[in-house]
Design a protein around this nucleic acid. Sequence first.
DNA 1: CGGAATCCTCTTCGATACTG
DNA 2: CAGTATCGAAGAGGATTCCG
Lengths: 130, 130
Amino acid sequence: MQLDPEMFDPVCPSGALPFRIGDKWTAMIVLCLENGPARFTELRVPLKRISPKVLTETLKAMERDGLVTRTAFDENPPRVEYELTALGRSLLALIGAVREWSSAHLADLLAHRERSPLSHRPGESRLAAP
Amino acid sequence: MQLDPEMFDPVCPSGALPFRIGDKWTAMIVLCLENGPARFTELRVPLKRISPKVLTETLKAMERDGLVTRTAFDENPPRVEYELTALGRSLLALIGAVREWSSAHLADLLAHRERSPLSHRPGESRLAAP
DNA sequence: CGGAATCCTCTTCGATACTG
DNA sequence: CAGTATCGAAGAGGATTCCG
C-alpha cells in the first residue's frame, strides 16, 4: 500500500463542513485504508500534521468501535497493520455522500459565511480549519 | 408549528454516532424546522436540555452559514421565527443517510464497543452522550 | 419573549520528548 | 517502527443570572 502524500488538499475547507465523521481524523483514516491495509507510519504521511499520540488515540477508538483491525507482526523491526472491517467499510458510502453534498453546496455555504455581517465570535469557526 | 416534545429520544445513542452534522445541535434543529418555521422558545421544547446561550450561538452560526433565516416581528410580546433556507433543506437528505446508516449499523458498533477490552480512557467517549 | 453576559468544566487536539 | 508519557492551549458546551 502506497499512500499519496498529497491525497488530502492542505487548503481543503473540510474543516468548515457542517459534518464530521467521528473525530477530526476518522474519515481521513477510513479513506486512507480504502484500498487496503496500511502501517502506522504510512498513515502519518498523508495525514501530515497528525501527532503520533492523536493517531494512536484515534486508531484505538476506531478499533474499539470495530471500524478497523490491528495486526501486529512479530518481526524486527516491528510491523503493525491497520485494516478496515466491514463495518468501517460501510462508512465509505456515507463519506461519499458527504463529499457529494460538499461539491454541490459547500461553496454556497462558504460564500454566505463570507458575506454575513454576523460576528464570527464567540466560537469563531465552529469546525474551522487550523 | 407544533413541535412534539418527545421527538428526540432521550436515551437515543446518537451521541455515540461516528458522525456529526455541524455541532451537537445543528442536525436536530434542522429536523425541528423540517415542517415549517419555529420560534426560539418552541425550539427549546424538543431540544429539552439546551441552554438559551447555546441555542442562540447555534442559530447564529446556522444563519451565518445560510442554513436558516431569522425573522423578527415588531410585536409585543416580541416574536422571532427561524426557517430553513434551501441550503439548510439540502441537509435533510444527508441527515436521512446518517439515520439509515445508524439503523443498519449503530447497534453493531455499540455492541463491539461494549465487548472491547480496549480502555475507554483517555478520551473516554469521543462523542459519547451526556 | 428572546435573548446577552458571565463564569466554568470537560474534551479535543497538538507539541515535544522518550522508549521497547 | 510503533508507539507512550507529559504538558499545555483552545474551544465546545453548559449553568446561571440579568435585560429590553
